[in-house]
Design a protein around this nucleic acid. Structure first.
Length: 425
RNA sequence: GGAGCGGUGGCAGAGUGGACGAAUGCACCGGUCUUGAAAACCGGCGACCUGAAAGGGUCCGAGGGUUCGAAUCCCUCCCGCUCCGCCA
């Protein structure tokens, strides 16, 4: 959520920043218009409340002095003003709620440093690492769903029987690989990040703080009976850990990590990149997250990108880092980088991590503040990223580590998680 | 799921209709004293909205109601604790 005061005082700057996303800025005008009304109405309401309060005090005094008749008169007047006050209060509340709803739907302003662009085709590649794309042999040019079936480590046919389309099931070494990736990503980040095992079902309030609600309700699974939502990412519960709290600046930055299942309805993406493990309704992911001061945030963003990149590199996969341009950014993002791995069997770059800086956008929604020096409170900055999203890394490993003579090797860094074996299959 | 008791400032905790945004203690900040610290003493110390300021307003779990006036009374919901039931 953007600061309404910023909309009020820097209207043109905010509009220009939002225009870089390629979106219409009429909502900004709407918000400003409603804000004027809210302030007018609540000012008038406050005046009336003040009158009611002082009249009521007079009643008390008159009663005490035994002047019942006079008290009656003042009571009648107070009743009359009270009715007017109630009417204004209702109107003010209604307009304030409308303003709130408008604000919830206005996206974050991109960082001045974020590159301009209309869509994902404009995302600049920042770095490329790992092996050369020409280095892969024919034995590695087989899609992971074929290898998975051949070696009995992926059983999507039965996953679909159990749960329907776009669910997957790993077996044997494939299941071990999925679990090993989670443990590995957690272990690598354990020095800086506190490990958390958050709830997977969350309230609407929690899902609103990060920005999924109200705009993207269709993308999430909702359990109506209990009004709970299945988390699409651990970012959701992690961001709300300190919701409605005021943090001690001495404790910032605070870093958390969590391995959780993630649930996404993938509404509107049916049939697109859905084979094998490329896009699924449920997948495991290790998320890293931080609360920071505005000053700390850029440094943490660099730190997170570097850390994610190093994790992927250590798995021996071809990979690259791209920066997300203004036209391709998520609603809450201020600045964002993706890490992609190259999967030789499907011959595609696969997004396996997205690291983002949200400035104070989520903190305003979640009312997460700290005390900066010099008094008062200010919203913190939030950042997060996938340290490792399992399915696509799984796919890239299975394809990359397929041997010319058959079988699939375990990447060296994962050997400690394979119970003494050096083969996935 | 049932019964009982609760939910007040960073924490603890008083307040059961009229000057209560709220005693007191702890914590915290500033000062005096001290070489320094501690102790003692003095002072300060919630958040939010609005306003140039003075000021005004909101917030005692949430929402609604009663009343001239609600932290205080009533209703609904949420959360916690204790006991019972169920249960990995």
């Amino acid at each position: 959520m953007l600061d309404i005061r910023r909309l009020r005082t820097e209207t043109d700057e905010v509009k220009a920043a939002l225009a870089r996303r390629g979106i219409d800025t009429v909502e900004v005008d709407r918000a400003i218009e409603l804000d004027v009304q809210v302030r007018q109405l609540s000012g008038d309401r406050d005046d009336l409340r003040n009158q009611v309060k002082s009249l009521s005090k007079q009643v008390g005094t008159l009663r005490r002095d035994g002047k019942a008749a006079e008290a009656e008169e003042v009571q009648a007047e107070s009743r009359r003003v009270g009715a007017l006050e109630q009417e204004l209060a209702d109107r003010a509340a209604a307009v304030a709620e409308e303003l709130h709803q408008v604000l919830l739907r206005i996206p974050n302003t991109p960082s001045p440093e974020a590159p301009d662009g209309a869509g994902d085709q404009d995302n600049p590649v920042i770095r490329i690492g790992g092996r050369d794309l020409g280095d892969f042999g024919d034995h590695q040019r087989i899609p992971h769903w074929e290898l998975g079936t051949r070696y009995g480590i992926l059983d999507n046919e039965r996953a679909v029987k159990i749960s329907g389309a776009m669910f997957t099931m790993q077996r044997k070494g494939g299941a071990t690989l999925a679990r090993a990736l989670l443990s590995y990503a957690l272990d690598r980040n354990a020095e800086l990040y506190e490990e958390v095992r958050p709830p997977s079902l969350v309230t609407s309030e929690t899902l609103t703080a990060t920005g999924q609600l109200p705009k993207f309700a269709d993308d999430a699974y909702h359990l109506e009976r209990d009004d709970l939502w299945a988390i699409p990412t651990a970012e959701v519960p992690l961001t709300s850990i300190h919701r409605d709290e005021i943090l001690d600046p001495a404790e910032l930055p605070m870093r958390f990590m969590a391995a959780t299942a993630c649930y996404r309805r993938e509404a509107g993406s049916a049939g697109r990149d859905t084979r094998g493990m490329l896009r699924t309704h449920e997948f495991d992911k290790v998320e890293i997250f931080a609360y920071a001061t505005p000053e700390q945030a850029p440094m943490l963003l660099d730190e997170m990108v570097a850390s994610v990149e190093a994790t992927i590199a250590s798995l021996g996969l071809a990979h690259r880092v791209i920066e997300i341009c203004t036209g391709d950014m998520g609603q809450s993002h201020h600045r964002s980088f993706d890490v992609e791995v190259y999967a030789p069997g499907v011959d595609q770059w696969l997004e396996v991590s997205s690291v983002s800086w949200f400035s104070d956008y989520q903190a305003r929604r979640g009312n997460i503040r700290y005390r900066p020096g010099g008094g008062g409170t200010a919203p913190v900055h939030t950042l997060n990223g996938s340290a490792l999203a399992v399915p696509r890394v799984w796919a890239a490993i299975v394809e990359t580590y397929h041997r010319p003579d058959g079988g699939i090797d375990v990447p060296e860094v994962l050997l400690p998680y394979f119970r003494g074996s050096n083969r996935i299959a």
